[in-house]
Amino acid sequence: MLKKRLVGVITVRGGWAVQSFGYRRWLPLGRPEVLAQNLDRWGVDEILVQAVDRSASRAGPDFELLDRLGRIGLSSPLIYGGGIASVSDAARVVQSAADRVVVDALMHDDAEEVRRISGHLGAQAVIGALPLAVHEGGLRWLDHRTGREGELRPAIVELFRLGIASEALVIDWRHEGSAGAFDERLLESFPVPEVPLIAFGGLSEARQIRSVLGSARVAAAAIGNFLNYSEHAVQRYRQQLAGVPVRPATFSSAGQP
């Protein structure tokens, strides 16, 4: 049986790792590369670095950050999102440090370019991110650049149906950063049942993560702010998820970076 994954999320804004609350309030945390190194030592299954201000400012991917991440020699797979607007951006991101890329705004701006990225890197290296909310029974998508909600367009759904992206990062943006608040209806409502989902946004309690990972549609639970409040947060989740097919907790010895 395939193991389910715990993904550590590092949200980056203005070059700093931040805590993010509902896509509208941020608190500083520190250097993204120090957070990544720490998550790596704790034995997270994947690290997602999302530079949330790169698309809105048209700054492109944060290659300086990727360079720093590349130098620390992570053993955990690295996912990067933020500012990717073309095949060349995506290819350079992977050449820099990342194993996979996340696209969000680009799916709406230029679905054809997403297809080309998928063709170039392979679909297994592409994740589609969707900040969503359940509204009157349907899913609404948030354009994080403008703060406006709109419909989840059929063209986006079609990208997933065609297997352009290997997984969908389903983000409960309204509850992002709020303890125990992830809306599981988002997972049930996702219109392409065959696409594995990564749940993110308000996942903080082991009971809730167990419930989310219990869904056959969910491949991974992604956790952000809540990994920063105490030592060994990842290992604690693993211990509390006994019976769920996740890797057991590991604790490194002294002298390890």
Binding site: G30, R31, Y229, S230, E231, G255, P257
Partner: peptide, 27 residues
């Protein structure tokens, strides 16, 4: 204001390295 008081943040090696030690541990 790195954390709310209600986050009840605890001591971590990550914070020590990142901020107390300016990104450099002993090694």
């Amino acid at each position: 204001g790195m954390f709310s008081h209600e986050h009840e943040v605890e001591m971590t090696r990550r914070y020590r390295k990142d901020h107390d030690l300016m990104g450099r541990e002993a090694d």
